[in-house]
């Protein structure tokens, strides 16, 4: 049998192509899917947050920004002045922007235009997780929607998918915009998406998120939504709460008392 140079190059090319597909084959055919699908801390949990804005507002008007500052410090969040490239984990939006479908002309004066704390909703059915092409965003077994910054390719599909504007992209290197870097938590780098992680690093150690701890008004209540006797469940069963954009079927884990 004679092998021409052309057919040799062709076969070589085909082999090379096959090599690049090998990891995909391994991952599809492998039996270790368990550590990729729906991983995370204790199963049977679903962490949630109840936000009581009535408790927050008096302090907020006095200028209290403790939760934002604590979050910013604990996670090395850069302070970027350019609104278009800002990194936001936890911030406020006026009622009609946070809840556009709830707004109407005759809304109570006590609500209209009032700031509401917004953050990643850690949806039970998160569209960002569904669209991520690398599983860099995934839902842990305890309900936290988490990001693996080592894996993110920066395609920003999750930003298009998130109906809550909770995701930010690092358009440039964030380090120059961090005033004081806390060595206990990594920064992010240019080219990846980031968002609130419900302080998974604290929750895993049995602590509550840093914003909840920092709040002097007790306006943020954190707990397990699957546990019928938890504080959050008691509040939810006793008082009327609203969610952001419930009509989209994402099932947020952040609830608002109004």
């Amino acid at each position: 049998m004679t092998t021409s140079r052309r057919s040799f190059i062709k076969a070589g090319g085909a082999c090379l192509l096959g090599l690049t597909l090998w990891p995909a084959v391994k991952s599809f055919a492998g039996n270790n899917a368990g550590n990729i699908e729906n991983p995370g801390a204790p199963a049977g949990k679903r962490w949630g947050l109840v936000i009581d804005m009535q408790k927050c507002w008096p302090k907020y008007q006095e200028g209290c920004r403790d939760c934002f500052l604590a979050c910013r410090k604990a996670h090395n969040i850069p302070d970027i002045a350019d609104k278009e490239e800002e990194i936001k984990w936890l911030w406020t939006e006026p009622f009609e922007n946070a809840f556009p479908e709830q707004e109407h002309e005759y809304i109570a004066a006590g609500i209209k235009g009032k700031p509401f704390i917004v953050l990643c909703n850690h949806c039970n059915n998160p569209p960002c997780v569904r669209v991520c092409p690398t599983k860099a965003t995934f839902k842990r077994r305890d309900g936290i929607v988490m990001m693996d910054y080592h894996r993110c390719i920066g395609c920003r599909y999750c930003m298009a998918a998130c109906p809550y504007g909770a995701r930010s992209f690092n358009f440039s290197d964030p380090r120059p915009y961090i005033k004081e870097i806390d060595p206990a938590y990594p920064t992010r780098e240019k080219g990846v998406v980031e968002k609130c992680n419900f302080c998974a690093e604290r929750v895993d150690l049995g602590l509550v998120p840093v914003c909840v701890e920092a709040c002097r008004a007790g306006a943020l209540i954190f707990g397990d939504l699957e546990e019928p006797n938890s504080v959050v469940r008691k509040i939810l069963s006793g008082r009327y709460t609203i969610l952001r954009k419930p009509e989209l079927g994402t099932h947020p884990s952040v609830f608002y008392l109004v």
Partner: peptide, 11 residues
């Protein structure tokens, strides 16, 4: 360690 912490929540 990285995978355990980030993806499994085991620290």
């Amino acid at each position: 360690w990285r995978n355990q912490v980030v993806r499994e929540g085991k620290r």
